[in-house]
């Protein structure tokens, strides 16, 4: 469960309805993917950087949790520099590799965009409690509650799956097949995990059904999930960041709708 245990941070951020956090991340991300240009990404990134100061994360937690994004961004940027649509002066060419002015600009834009999209999502999700998320999805967004709660119950099994995974690995070593090829071992472990998890799932389904889950009675909720001014504010902030980024990009002539212009 450790990976999915929310980081509480400050109460102000933790207490915001997770639905609003997802909404904010969506508003921001969906706006930013509309264009690939370094200006909109950079503007968004700077504004986000300022807002992160209120996210309630220590620098250590922030960098630990966002590390994958910091690794992925340069990787994605480099791919685009090497293979991006060529334009302007050519610096280097080998087979399909074609480094040009244009591809370098696209590459930098890609790098910034990955950061601008990835970082706020991680920061917002680090403080999401799955139970609160499910409450929000069912009560605020009115998604079908059987599916929301089923997903939530499945999520609770993550800790058990990780334990299973460790035991399965040890057991393979004990059975004399622990040194076989990596791919074969991964496939065999994945399958075994699937068998164990489906069995667990079937048992869990019986237990949940025995507690009235899925009955035709209209369900009540022990915890209220509300959408108030804090939630609205968060979405407004996200929209403001997105609009500012677009406005600056368009006004400086950098806006590039889904990379339509090289």
């Amino acid at each position: 469960m450790s990976i999915l245990t929310p980081h509480r941070g400050t109460q102000a951020v933790y207490a915001i309805n997770p639905v609003a956090k997802i909404g904010a991340a969506f508003v921001l991300s969906l706006t930013l993917i509309l264009s690939i240009d370094w200006v909109s990404a950079a503007v968004a990134l700077v504004l986000e950087g300022i807002l992160f100061l209120w996210a309630g994360l220590t620098p250590r937690v922030f960098f630990l949790r966002t590390l994958p994004v910091w690794i992925a961004a340069p990787a994605a940027g480099l791919t685009t520099i090497l293979y991006g649509r060529p334009s302007g002066e050519t610096y280097f060419q080998f087979w399909l590799v074609h480094v040009t002015d244009g591809s370098i600009e696209l590459g930098i834009a890609t790098l910034l965009r990955v950061l601008a999209i990835g970082l706020p999502a991680v920061v917002l999700f680090v403080t999401v409690d799955p139970t609160d998320l499910a409450d929000g999805l069912a009560q605020v967004l009115h998604l079908p509650n059987r599916f929301v709660l089923g997903g939530l119950a499945g999520l609770r099994l993550v800790g058990l799956f990780l334990d299973d995974w460790r035991s399965l690995k040890l057991a393979r070593r004990a059975r004399g097949v622990g040194d076989s090829g990596r791919i074969r071992r991964f496939a065999s472990l994945g399958f075994a995990l699937l068998v164990l998890s489906i069995r667990r799932g079937s048992k869990l389904a019986t237990a949940m059904e025995a507690r009235g889950f899925g009955s035709p009675i209209k369900r009540t909720y022990a915890r209220a999930s509300t959408f108030g001014w804090r939630e609205t504010l968060l979405i407004v902030i996200a929209a403001a960041v997105a609009l500012t980024a677009v406005a600056v990009s368009v006004s400086t002539g950098h806006w590039n709708f889904i990379g339509s212009t090289g």
Partner: peptide, 20 residues
């Protein structure tokens, strides 16, 4: 396989919720 939710109170409440 019988624990449904992450917190003790919520887990006990689960059946009651389903019964409305």
């Amino acid at each position: 396989s019988q624990v449904m939710l992450a917190r003790v109170g919520d887990d006990v409440a689960f059946g009651c919720e389903n019964l409305g």
